[in-house]
């Protein structure tokens, strides 16, 4: 088995960041996230051994604000001088299975079903993903219940923490080519991989989609939604929430259109120019969010849009817990 000594991780990242922008789980002040290795001057507190970081790497492939193209206007004039395609090569190093699965969700959303989103596609094509197998699920983790194997992230290469070394496993052709480039930092060693520790929460997700298909008008949504204040925290911290808005910034004759993350929690999200709104109430928006994650996405792409990372559980100001909600949905027959 190929391994890399943990002491060689920093030299590896230093080397990789000469050719690519390398995003590494690190702690920065009171936050943690996937920050660009070169932007981290001084103390680089790598968080590869932590369960995960606070901010998922969704920003790397789907920036919160992304300029799409420039525009020029004048009397009767409207032109688009430049389109911004970000072709920089990137590496996401040390992503966990839940966040990697969220990228798989993005691939399906942005690259399939009739249209390929060129901005995402360009970025994605130039990105190599190094997964970090997860053997010790945390308090709010439930990826296994959502059909994800925490020790096999969707990635080009997967590293497995085995004490003083990481076992190095090339998964894809890209991963094999990448491995060849760093061959000199790897060595052969026989070792056993750790055992996956049990999850504190496990449930059987089978049947939830079918159940939800008959629950659109169920009264339970009222009760579940009542504590929700429709802040967008869950949607912005979620690794798989992909909704966006398209807006413009213009000064005088010149400007640009950009897209930015948006949240289905806001009234404005579905407010129509004519004044109507198909989801006027807080409860309508709450229901749409959970149905999108747990039912609608599965109907469209065959698996749920929740990867069990548990971030929304940790950040909801009002203690709304998606595991709890799934369990409540499963129990519905017993309640009615």
């Amino acid at each position: 088995m190929q391994v890399i000594d943990k002491n060689k991780i920093v030299p590896l990242l230093d080397r990789l960041s000469k050719q690519s922008e390398v995003f590494v789980p690190t702690v920065k002040g009171s936050e943690s996230g996937f920050y660009s290795w070169n932007s981290l001057n001084g103390a680089k507190e790598i968080a590869l051994e932590a369960l995960n970081v606070y901010h998922s790497p969704k920003n790397v492939l789907f920036p919160q604000t992304e300029r799409m193209y420039s525009i020029e206007q004048g009397k009767q004039v409207f032109s688009i001088p430049d389109t911004f395609q970000d072709e920089k090569s990137r590496i996401i190093f040390g992503i966990r299975a839940c966040d990697a699965k969220a990228i798989t969700c993005f691939d399906d959303v942005f690259l399939t079903h009739g249209y390929e989103d060129s901005f995402y596609a360009t970025r994605r094509k130039n990105t190599i993903i190094i997964g970090n197998a997860c053997y010790q699920p945390g308090a709010n983790c439930f990826c296994s219940s959502m059909g994800i194997n925490p020790v096999q992230p969707d990635a080009d290469v997967v590293i497995h923490d085995a004490g003083t070394v990481y076992a190095w496993e090339a998964i894809t052709v890209t991963g094999q080519q990448f491995t060849e480039q760093v061959q000199d930092l790897l060595e052969e060693k026989d070792l056993g991989l750790p055992q996956l520790k049990p999850f504190s929460t496990e449930f059987d997700y089978d049947g939830v989609v079918e159940k939800l298909q008959g629950m659109f008008d169920h009264e339970i949504w009222h009760e579940l939604a009542e504590p929700c204040m429709n802040c967008g925290t869950c949607t912005y911290m979620c690794p798989s929430c992909h909704c966006f808005d398209i807006q413009v910034k213009i000064w005088g004759d010149k400007g640009y259109r950009f897209r930015c993350w948006d949240s289905c929690m806001y009234t404005e999200y579905t407010a129509e120019a004519g004044g109507g709104n198909p989801r006027p109430d807080s409860q309508d928006r709450f229901r749409n969010r959970f149905l999108h994650k747990l039912e609608f996405f599965t109907e469209r792409y065959d698996y749920p849009l929740c990867t069990g990372c548990g971030r929304c559980i940790s950040v909801c100001p009002n203690g709304i817990n998606i595991i709890d909600i799934i369990k409540r949905i499963k129990e519905v027959d017993k309640i009615v």
Partner: peptide
């Protein structure tokens, strides 16, 4: 039908009615 739309290509998430996107 009509819903508010932004991308028109089934990505931005906004015009869904159930699992269907009005735009595509």
């Amino acid at each position: 039908l009509e819903m508010r739309m932004k991308c028109g290509i089934g990505k931005c998430g906004r015009c869904n009615v159930g699992s269907q996107y009005i735009c595509v």
